[in-house]
Structures are given as structure tokens and as C-alpha cells.
């Protein structure tokens, strides 16, 4: 996927902000849908105010495509147990996300499953989190991917 294709127009999205804490509206993500992206890390941008995980996703038909996956702030992710070195180019991952409403290859991350069995949770990327989950500590998280496979 080219750079231009991940530049998104969100004017067509509907609904209200999914997270009052974020810098921008998360209304572009469809929180009613959960899919799992399985593939290889291309880049992990550990940056404020939101980290971005770029993954080359393997599809069931054998083809692949790039997805840009939005995480929370590193400051929060550190407090949820993440480390900047947890993800590096070439790593095999599965990522549960809420996809963009407009069909673009963008999603809101709420759990990353590493090859060594560890799970990195990002509760802000998911609906229904409490303030306590957001503040610090280990959030409740699934132990294996729960999303629908990527079609």
C-alpha cells in the first residue's frame, strides 16, 4: 500500500468520538467489527501522541497487503507493559483491530499477539474500557486473537 493510500478522508464517517482521551476522533473506526491481522511487522513507530504499527498482512488467498494500525501514546503503553523493542521489522504478529469504516487498510489496535506467546494490550483502542484500565496496570486482555480473519 502506498503512502498516499493511507492518507484518509474521514468526512464520510459517522458517529461520535470513540475515545474522549485521544487527540482526534476515533469515529473512523468501526468498533462493531473486530478483525485479526496476521503478518509481518514492516515498521513500528513508537511516537506520541499515537504509535503506529505497519504490518504486511497475509491474506487467506495467499496475497498480502499493508495495514497501518494505530495504537495509543507510548506513555500509556509503557504503563500497560509495552516496550519500544517489543516489535521490530520482520517479526511475525497477529493484531486484533477495529477496522476503518471506509474500507481502507487502517485499524485501531487493541491487542498484539507476539510469536513468543506474549500479548500486548492497548485498551484505549477498544470500546468499553474503564478509567482504571486506562490509568495503569495490566488491563484485561484476551489470550488469543478474537477477530474475524482478514478476507
Amino acid at each position: 500500500m502506498s503512502l498516499k493510500s493511507i492518507v484518509l478522508l474521514t468526512a464520510a464517517t459517522v458517529g461520535v468520538a470513540g475515545s474522549a482521551l485521544a487527540h482526534h476522533s476515533f469515529a473512523m473506526f468501526d468498533v462493531a467489527k473486530t478483525i485479526v491481522i496476521r503478518g509481518t511487522v514492516k515498521e513500528f513507530a513508537w511516537v506520541n501522541p499515537h504509535s503506529w504499527l505497519y504490518v504486511i498482512a497475509q491474506k487467506a488467498d495467499g496475497t498480502s497487503e499493508e495495514w497501518a494500525l494505530e495504537c495509543s501514546s507510548p506513555n500509556m503503553m509503557i504503563r500497560w507493559g509495552w516496550n519500544a523493542r517489543d516489535l521490530k521489522p520482520g517479526d511475525k504478529v497477529a493484531v486484533d483491530i477495529h477496522p476503518s469504516r471506509d474500507g481502507r487498510h487502517v485499524g485501531s489496535v487493541f491487542a498484539v499477539y507476539l510469536a513468543d506467546g506474549r500479548v500486548l494490550a492497548d485498551p484505549m483502542g477498544r470500546t468499553g474500557v474503564s478509567g482504571d484500565d486506562l490509568a495503569r496496570g495490566k488491563p484485561k486482555t484476551p489470550t488469543q486473537p478474537i477477530g474475524e480473519p482478514l478476507k
Binding site: 503512502l3 493511507i6 492518507v7 484518509l8 478522508l9 474521514t10 468526512a11 487527540h23 482526534h24 476522533s25 473512523m28 514492516k42 515498521e43 513507530a45 511516537v47 506520541n48 501522541p49 499515537h50 503506529w52 505497519y54 497501518a68 494505530e70 501514546s73 507510548p74 506513555n75 509503557i78 487502517v106
Partner: peptide, 29 residues
């Protein structure tokens, strides 16, 4: 912790109301 928001990968154009996000500005650009 340090918090440097100017490292932002998102950009909101207030004139058009368009949010551009996930922009590559890192080493793989």
C-alpha cells in the same frame, strides 16, 4: 515520562476538516 507530541504522525487540516493520519515520517519513508 517525556511526552513529545510534535512527533505526531497525524495531521488535521482545519480549513478542510480532513484528518490525515498514519503518515510516515520515520526512517522507512
Amino acid at each position: 515520562q517525556e511526552w513529545v507530541c510534535s512527533d505526531n504522525r497525524d495531521y488535521f487540516d482545519e480549513a478542510t476538516g480532513i484528518l490525515y493520519y498514519g503518515l510516515h515520517t520515520g526512517p522507512t519513508r
